[in-house]
């Protein structure tokens, strides 16, 4: 590992002042489960490492007037044991269950998972279905951006060096169905080959009155899938209908990525995982 200076600010203001001055040469570290790996591999060579893992301003999970707040410094273990999320963002909670390993969940944060911008990041599909906004802070103040604007490319974060992710504002939703599913090459410590998340509400007639869906590990950046959502909206979910939506989804995915060697698997597997995930609605 290249030598660097370690800085641990006492509070957010101190962190932002530091970033204001040295942001260009600084890498922010929280759980370190991606950053330390990259440091070891020499992928990143910062002058300063700014440790935000203890900033109180980045903590907490609360239902607030503007939405459901999840601090960037919240660990995956905290997400998994959160009763607020169980109630208001169950798919996010579920993704924490199969996230890497216990050791990693204990320190890895949701902010770090998003900022790393891996196309396989497990927290992103659940955040997308909740229309999550990213709350950003710099010495100039606070602003909010949709998640899709922050994750601008594979392992590329659109944020300026002076800015820090404080947390996420999710739209809480009262739904009857929600899930997160992923396909990995083994049952733990697995990188998502495909992940997906949805939440939905069935009305008293059995029709889908609300449906949000997101796909992970297939496209370079997170995105919305309005066509799939529109296809299902207002309809009674049948096995046929779900298969139809599944095929539409894989078509649209291929429109984005083109056909690659991995498409041989991903095309049917996306359909399969979608059907498997939505089957409980039938």
């Amino acid at each position: 590992m290249k030598d660097f200076a370690y800085v641990r600010p006492k509070n957010l203001v101190e962190a932002l002042s530091f970033l204001h001055e040295y942001g260009h040469d600084t890498k922010i570290i929280a759980g370190g489960t991606d950053v330390v790996v990259d440091l070891r591999a020499g992928v990143i060579k910062p002058e300063y490492l700014l440790d935000v893992s203890r900033l109180a301003e980045l903590k907490g999970i609360q239902l607030r007037s503007d939405g459901l707040w999840v601090g960037a410094g919240v660990t995956l273990s905290e997400i998994f044991s959160s009763e607020v999320l169980e109630c208001h963002a169950p798919a996010l909670k579920k993704c924490a269950a199969t996230f890497a390993s216990k050791q990693i969940r204990n320190v890895a944060t949701i902010g770090g998972n998003v900022a790393h911008c891996s196309p396989c990041a497990d927290t992103i599909p659940p955040l997308v279905i909740h229309d999550a906004d990213v709350v950003l802070a710099s010495i100039n103040g606070i602003r909010q951006l949709p998640l899709e604007h922050v994750v601008s490319g594979p392992y590329t974060c659109a944020l300026p060096d002076q800015e820090i992710i404080m947390g996420f504002i999710l739209k809480p939703a009262a739904v009857t169905h929600a899930d997160f599913q992923k396909i990995g090459r083994r049952k733990a410590l697995a990188t998502a080959r495909i992940s997906m998340s949805y939440m939905a509400r069935k009305d008293f007639r059995g029709k889908i009155s609300f449906f949000r869906f997101s796909l992970g590990a297939c496209t370079p950046t997170p995105r919305q899938w309005p066509m799939v959502e529109e296809l299902l909206a207002g309809k009674v979910p049948t096995e046929n209908l779900i298969w139809k939506a599944a095929r539409l989804l894989s078509e649209k995915m291929i429109e984005i990525t083109g056909r690659r060697s991995s498409t041989v698997y991903k095309e049917p597997a996306i359909q399969g995982l979608f059907v498997k995930m939505l089957y409980p609605m039938v």
Partner: peptide, 9 residues
């Protein structure tokens, strides 16, 4: 065998 995804248990 999960016939939809190819996963094996």
């Amino acid at each position: 065998v999960d016939v939809l995804t190819g996963e094996i248990t």
